[in-house]
Design a protein around this nucleic acid. Sequence first.
DNA 1: AACGAGACCTGGCAGC
DNA 2: TGCTGCCAGGTCTCGT
Length: 272
Amino acid sequence: MPELPEVETTRLGLLPLLNHRVTQVVIRNGSLRWPIPQSLIESLPQQTLKALTRRAKYILAHFDQGVLLLHLGMSGRLRLLSQDEPPQKHDHFDLIFNTGQVLRLHDPRRFGAVLWAGDDPQSHKLLSALGPEPLDKAFSGNYLQQNMRTRTAAIKITIMDSHLVVGVGNIYASESLFRARIHPLTPAKALSLDDCNRLVVAIKSTLRDALAAGGSSLRDFLSTDGSPGYFQQAYFAYARTGQPCKICANPIKNIRLGQRSTFYCDVCQRLP
DNA sequence: AACGAGACCTGGCAGC
DNA sequence: TGCTGCCAGGTCTCGT
């Protein structure tokens, strides 16, 4: 589930763990994108969870002595369970707390990550080169135009580059471009300031709407019955190939771009 | 500096 | 029923 709104929803769902103490770390399969450090088994117990923050799609769990980085990859889920809940297939990692709660990572494709970042996570290799958060003021039309002046690649690919801006995944890239009425194949450097302003507004509004929807699934997330209960997002373009555009009724097109499916309306989203 | 392709891994589904 | 091939919400790394 993990695009930015899902990661943020996940983070919020973990807040009940704040100020509780880890008593045990279980690594069932440490072969994620990078190996889970075995040293966590010794170093995390007796440490208290002080804060949960987010940077891009990373969840940062701040403990007494450092920060644990969690990434969900393509198929990861973090859930709060009770201690006696038996692990299922693909349940790779547990943090067990003194309250009897378990933070459990489930990740069939194992593209996710559990890493130790020490006490200066911002300087961690994976975080130090990231672009601004999409909902920050620093992410503006001016910023976007300035930083795309040398970019000849398609705008759809460019806005998914985390060095430019973080948190715009494959679904919300298509959705944002639809809202901004920009064709996904437009070369990034060809966007006018007006285009960039519309695109920034569209990215922010798309993510905010999805966050609100993700919030509505929070109760399902917290319940430990395993029901996904995911809010059915009302997409304009994503996964609507051949279905009528909600604005002009023309069929939605689907192309491959950067090896990813890309959806758009070729009437509402014109090439310049 | 920027681009495109390959890599990591499993599961679900369509088509034969 | 079983096999094959394709697709999936991410993003780092490498060769050009």
